[in-house]
Design a protein around this nucleic acid. Sequence first.
DNA 1: TTGTACGCGTTATCAA
DNA 2: TTGATAACGCGTACAA
Lengths: 334, 334
Amino acid sequence: MVTIKEVAQRAGVSITTVSRVLNNPGYSISPATKERVLQAVAELDYRPNALARGLLKKGISAIGLVVPDISNPYYPEVVRGVEDVASRLGYTVILCNTDRDIDKVRRYVRVLLEKRVDGIIFAGGGIEGSDDDFLRPDLKVVLIGRHGLDLPSVQVNNVKAAFQATEHLIELGHRRIAAITGPEASTTSLDRLMGYKKALKEYNLPVDGSLIQKGNFRPEAGYQATKNLLSIEERPTAIVTANDQMALGAIRAIREAGLQVPGDISVAGFDDVCVASYFDPPLTTVSVPMYSMGVRSMEMLARLIANEKEKRRVVLETKLVIRQSTGPRYRREG
Amino acid sequence: MVTIKEVAQRAGVSITTVSRVLNNPGYSISPATKERVLQAVAELDYRPNALARGLLKKGISAIGLVVPDISNPYYPEVVRGVEDVASRLGYTVILCNTDRDIDKVRRYVRVLLEKRVDGIIFAGGGIEGSDDDFLRPDLKVVLIGRHGLDLPSVQVNNVKAAFQATEHLIELGHRRIAAITGPEASTTSLDRLMGYKKALKEYNLPVDGSLIQKGNFRPEAGYQATKNLLSIEERPTAIVTANDQMALGAIRAIREAGLQVPGDISVAGFDDVCVASYFDPPLTTVSVPMYSMGVRSMEMLARLIANEKEKRRVVLETKLVIRQSTGPRYRREG
DNA sequence: TTGTACGCGTTATCAA
DNA sequence: TTGATAACGCGTACAA
């Protein structure tokens, strides 16, 4: 790689001059030398070494983006939001997948710190317990979602959102409403479960443990959990799943049992991934502004980096989208 | 941030010694000093500056991963494959979304070069025409997919795969088979279209332009294209779409028209995204090993970086997965 | 076994 | 309008 020194030699000037031509547009330089420098740069295809610059300036205009698993359909949108803003602001995004493994988190944070990123965005949790690593006051951090850590964050009110989804089912006349959760470590899933319970209590419906099935955000889990639900004596007439994927699995299981959605059992999902409206039936779900969450978190981080004042917490709105996978409960027995 | 110098002072040794303790596990150092150094490192929470090291060693153990759009469900798997291997090999992944915009590609390549990445993986095309930027012989590049550039690449035989999908439909008795393509700039889509045409010719079926609809990989496009197809005089009895998303849209349009899948019209997708088997009906599609493509490309890049011998091209196998969205054509007319 | 000193490629300070 | 030169933080010959 050609260095600034070689450019200087070729142009017959000092490296200082080259640097000035390149980085100080306002600096007064004779047009002649400026021309020579620019030409040398072009001829040698010179690329300034960001590492050298970063060494001096501290920081390389990069941020770390830590997610559990990019192949979980929830995250790509978030990542895209982050990246769009980062790119616009001159930051580069280093992507890290942790599988919610705390050791991986630690390793990544270490690497990111060594690479002197300007900040880190943690999405989707899995970082509880590694406090010591990133609570360094000099490190700028933004969280996406609720992490049980007192750091700036972009959130969504999952409790309220799940409450609404459950309420929707209750208003349709459902009394036995099941829930299929995400992984136990996910606070998002926990909050959604809480909203579900809260709605039941609010409407004086019993919280029946057998109607709460553990899942993991994947369609298979929704499928299996639903098979379990269908096998219990008095089966539910509606199911809320902690994400859209599992709703798909649930619908499949219901149909395989010879039942209809929503005729026999209503199903509501969560997230509103882009294909949800193309499911069969189109999925009733809670729309979560994933892209916006990415955008906002990066904007927050940028302000934090610039040491500007910044809210500790931003809560974005969700929206219940009623499509055709939920419908009134027709009383069948009695 | 604390530097190696401060660690040295605190431990009462030279920076050389600190460096050796940290980087040369084999170097003979008195246990006593070693202990002191380690303690100082721990106490000060010292993090070596990767920028400084990178400046010296040239390169910062990072690679660039350029994709059109991470929120397109095709890429997250690929990205995950790349990242898994990169992480294992000690590389960090810088993610770039280009939207197939050549200017964005150029900007990103410039930034990556300045940051002295060790190599770049381009996935999904959109880089044709910016040759000058990355054909620098010193830059290690791996392509995922066919790019019309003579560089090391990981591919899938899309022509053959589409041929097989189409052949499958032909063998089921279909004669009027439609195709819904991806964006025109996508070589992947082009190849798939070519395989479709090839199959028709092979079986002496006419290639009817009105049966080829332009799409863009999104469900809406599949929906709209299918509505178009349903309105032509002699409508098709089968449809091959360039990806699974559009197949979803197609199925929706077919059902809205009061027709059945596959009873009236068979639909075959492409990619086999993870939820494809949970669609209704479970989607017949061509399974593309997205994760493996990511893995292999990063492995190739690592070998390139290490200046080891490396194949120019790896072609991975696809597999036609026959599920329930395709079925025999029942003659209805005449 | 340990330490000194140079250089990696830049930018910033100071002087001319 | 230009140019020496000193950092930035680290690794590594070379010395001791």
